[in-house]
Design a binder for these strands. Structure first.
Lengths: 358, 358
DNA sequence: CAACATTGCACAATCGATGGTGCAATCAAC
DNA sequence: GTTGATTGCACCATCGATTGTGCAATGTTG
């Protein structure tokens, strides 16, 4: 293994060995050589020399000169969650299909962090940005606008840029209906048995809450109040909310809607602190998808957004920017209990499967 | 909102408005101005002008000139999994604490994809690379070595570069002991009741299998064979393995070890296809951590690696590269059933919690 | 006040690519 | 054989920063 840790070859190196000028080498290597009327012979020679010297373009230099970096960013609140990690996975696949290199970053649900993070992406001259679940989409928008950076909101809409979101209200209606019907089959159910936990003061939560209330009203024939508990996207705060409920009623609600899998983790923590209790009679809806949650010892209905469709529409918006900001809704999917859906990982064959183990 | 979409300010713009030269502006803005004997007065003026004009350095240009990009990469096999997404989350936090911008990418367990992906990182002149769960760590190492790129392996060791890994063998022993003891409390158990599913022909799997066999031998006093089923890291293949087992024995093993949460998803799929069956008497160990898995209707023991410790040691190795490749082991944690651990998200306060809902 | 040291900054090359422009050599046409 | 078109490429400025070097102005010393 001759570890020739030579400094990386540049077009100037190739220009020397090929006898052509640097601009000719550049044109050949970036594919514009026909337009520049470089002879096929010269091109072939340079290409083979490039292969021989393991030439790789310095993309920083290219980006600096051409002001197109080939980078596309995705701003997430957090990675550590099935919803966003699946978004990252799908984003990466779609980006590389388009010849772009993805930069995924997280803003940790902190408006200042979000802006700092986006600024660093801008400093690296990314070409486009997907904004997912930002606490302050319009603040991020302003940064992008100032930098002339194309961007779309994903999953959480902003008022100033185009957005692709799941149809939260319709999904919430479907989810609420599903859990109420399931609970009604177990036994009689009143509106006071149906609650919602989680969420914050953002568009998605508001829509879901509206859908939740609409579905309840349609089934029970009356509007209900005091049946939601806002906890933010925090497992700890959600667990505390369940503790409070439990302290007051000595049980959990028969039937409840949880705003996201992060909040769902709060339910799990609550349960971990009540090892003796049985929670076999509850019916839960979760506006999010985690395959493990589907197999818990009580029925869990979930909503899974159609991530490939959402991101595809996002890329389409960037390709052909509409004159005015568009709001595109994508139908999410209702996942009944005990269902293990396929995910982005299933696109990957694992070839090692064929090799013998130890 | 005066959307002044002016082209971004450069040191030349500031040089004009300040009356100083571009090199002076540069020195002031990158902090080397004392060394260059720029007067404090000049520095102050330039700094305030920079703020006024919202100057942000073009990091591509800086990287090109100084050949230090400020980027650090993390190569994952996949995002869509608690183990790796938690790694990404922690990595980002540690990187930004060090003033670096993280670039997280996935190689999808395909050696060619891995190399392509790493090549694109190299083309953007990243300063360092963390290689996690690469199918071919040494192939990636060669790419890095040729580019003179500092790198460490995380979680899966390579022979040619330093590695920080979980102590797989010790963890597997602890996990195997835990599930066998639990199953023994339910009823008498023989070595033929204890199986292992998942994994592939990599270092981690081999170590885990060795630990599994060692623990079994220690408890049952004999070596056992034919008790492992290699499935690769694929939910589908793992589900198929359970189907085969079930077809032969009309039940699942009383007690089994699953190599990762991805394989665990295979178990869930299997269960989804057997809705009538009860699997209440099984005891499962999973060499991975997913909070949801902990609350399934059968006991699940899990192993969680100490991600912050592992990544910290990784950064330390990059800061002070040892003369010869080191292998550093970090003890993982055994997580009993029905335990909801805190994760990286708990470091985030969710301030919106205080705001009223809709 | 001459000689020298120090202060404060400007100049210009450079990183590795891109792309507009210009020019010699070849070719075709009359 | 002159003119004009075409081919094939080289030259050079440029993107926005960093950094080694040089030099005038000021300060210090005797």
């Amino acid at each position: 293994m001759t570890t020739r840790e030579q400094k990386k070859a540049t077009i100037y190196d190739l220009s020397v060995v090929s006898g052509a000028s640097a601009s000719t080498v550049s044109a050949v290597l970036n594919g514009t050589w026909r337009k520049r009327r470089i002879s096929e012979e010269t091109a072939d020679k340079i290409l083979s020399l490039a292969k021989e010297h393991d030439y790789k373009a310095n993309l920083q230099a290219r980006a600096l000169r051409s002001s197109r970096s080939g980078l596309t960013g995705l701003l997430l609140p957090v990675y550590d969650n099935r919803f966003f990690s699946s978004m990252a996975q799908t984003f990466e696949a779609l980006a590389s299909k388009r010849g772009l290199v993805p930069m995924v970053v997280s803003g940790r649900r902190d408006p200042q962090e979000e802006c700092r993070t986006v600024e660093s992406l801008i400093a690296y001259s990314i070409d486009s940005l997907f904004i997912a679940g930002a606490t302050d989409p319009d603040g991020v928008h302003d940064l992008c606008a100032r930098a002339g950076l194309a961007h779309v909101n994903i999953d959480l809409p902003g008022s100033k840029a185009s957005s692709v979101i799941a149809d939260n209200r319709q999904g919430a209606v479907a989810l609420t209906q599903a859990i109420i019907r399931h609970a009604q089959e177990i036994g009689p159910l009143g509106p006071d048995d149906v609650f919602l936990f989680g969420g914050r003061d953002d568009h998605a939560s508001r829509e879901r809450i509206a859908g939740f209330h609409a579905a309840k009203a349609a089934i029970f024939g009356e509007n209900t109040f005091g049946d939601i508990e806002i906890t933010g996207y925090s497992p700890g705060m959600t667990a505390a909310a369940f503790e409070r409920f439990f302290a007051r009623h000595r049980r959990l609600p028969r039937c409840f809607f949880i705003n996201s899998s992060i909040n769902f983790e709060g339910l799990l923590r609550f349960m971990a602190h009540h090892p003796g209790e049985a929670f076999g009679d509850i019916v839960v809806g979760c506006f999010d998808y985690d395959p493990f949650a589907s197999f818990l010892p009580f029925p869990v209905y979930m909503i899974r957004p159609d991530m490939p469709a959402m991101l595809d529409k996002g890329f389409a918006l960037l390709d052909a920017p509409p004159a005015t900001p568009q709001l595109i809704m994508v139908e999410p999917q209702l996942v009944p209990p005990r269902t293990a859906l396929e995910g982005p990982l299933d696109a990957l064959d694992d070839p090692s499967t064929l090799s013998p183990g130890s």
